[in-house]
């Protein structure tokens, strides 16, 4: 909406990913694709679709990503038999949520999960009719909804405003995430500084292309590494409890969540920062 003209950068990124995939296939296992590869393909595909074909296609592609992440999360956690209505309600919240983005109703989008879903899901869980363990079930479902529907929904809403800013954010987060992963056993401070060294020039250098004022670009350049560090630190602990380990990733056992790890914290932070300070829409 804010961009002037479509850019071909997302298509170039897609081509790079396609070449990388070819290399992976031809190398017969010597080069392995990182776990965030599929997620990245989905993001760039969504950006290319929204710029060149239609935004709603991209939106429902991201809804599918959100569904896959939530499904994987719910397959990993320990659920009770009585929670089935609650789980059904959480799945149904995905189309509702993305439909709200589709009709551009920001006011309802922002409260749909924290107000209505968080009130309705406990009700549906209580319908199951067994009180033992209900507190944990509600907590588990609310957490999943918040991260895998609400936070992913923010990426989609950012894409609605500007594909360029989304592209910048995704690239920056991906770089920061890779650095974080490469420096596995180093102190958090070093990781942060190195991420800053990559992301800060990226944001400020592309300031004129994304049409974010220079000052805000600089702040974003600090905010993104900071929130990536925060998010990856938090989700590492959560993944450990869920039994996701990088050495035994399988489809359905942490591949999607591992790929989304860096984006979950950063996307809402960047989105709300920009929406507030650049005064998109009425607040």
């Amino acid at each position: 909406m804010l961009d002037d003209g479509s850019s071909i950068f997302s298509i170039i990124a897609l081509m790079v990913l396609a070449i990388f995939q070819m290399v992976t296939l031809l190398s017969k296992g010597r080069v392995a694709s990182p776990p965030s590869f599929r997620t990245l393909v989905v993001f760039f595909l969504a950006m290319a679709l929204s710029e060149w074909i239609s935004f709603s296609l991209a939106l429902w592609l991201l809804a599918l990503l959100s569904f896959r992440a939530l499904r994987e999360y719910l397959s990993l956690v320990d659920i009770r038999l009585e929670d089935r209505w609650g789980i059904l309600a959480s799945y149904l919240s995905i189309p509702c949520m993305f439909y709200l983005i589709h009709i551009e109703w920001y006011g309802f989008f922002i409260i749909a999960i924290p107000v209505y879903a968080f009130l309705l899901v406990p009700f549906f869980v209580a319908l199951g009719g067994r009180s033992q363990g209900i507190v944990f079930s509600v907590g588990v479902l609310d957490f999943g909804l918040f991260f895998f529907v609400f936070c992913v929904g923010h990426i989609a809403y950012l894409l609605f405003y500007s594909a360029r800013i989304t592209l910048l954010m995704i690239v920056a987060i991906t770089c920061a995430g890779w650095i974080h992963k490469a420096l596995k056993s180093r102190p958090l401070r070093l990781k942060f500084l190195l991420q800053l060294a990559v992301v800060f020039p990226l944001c400020t250098g592309l300031a004129s292309w994304t049409a974010i004022p220079m000052g805000h670009s600089a702040i974003l350049g600090v905010l993104i590494p900071f929130s990536v560090c925060l998010g990856r630190f938090t989700l590492k602990e959560l993944e450990e409890d869920l039994g996701i380990r990088a050495d035994r990733l399988q489809p359905g056992r942490g591949r999607t969540i591992e790929g989304l790890k860096s984006y979950l914290y950063t996307a809402p932070i960047v989105f709300h920062y920009l929406r507030w300070f650049l005064k998109w829409g009425d607040l």
Binding site: L74, S75, L81, I87, Q250, R253
Partner: peptide
Amino acid sequence: ERAFPKVAPFPLPLWNH
């Protein structure tokens, strides 16, 4: 056994291995 257990009235989307 989680996606569509014997007593459940409807199936739920959950992974199968």
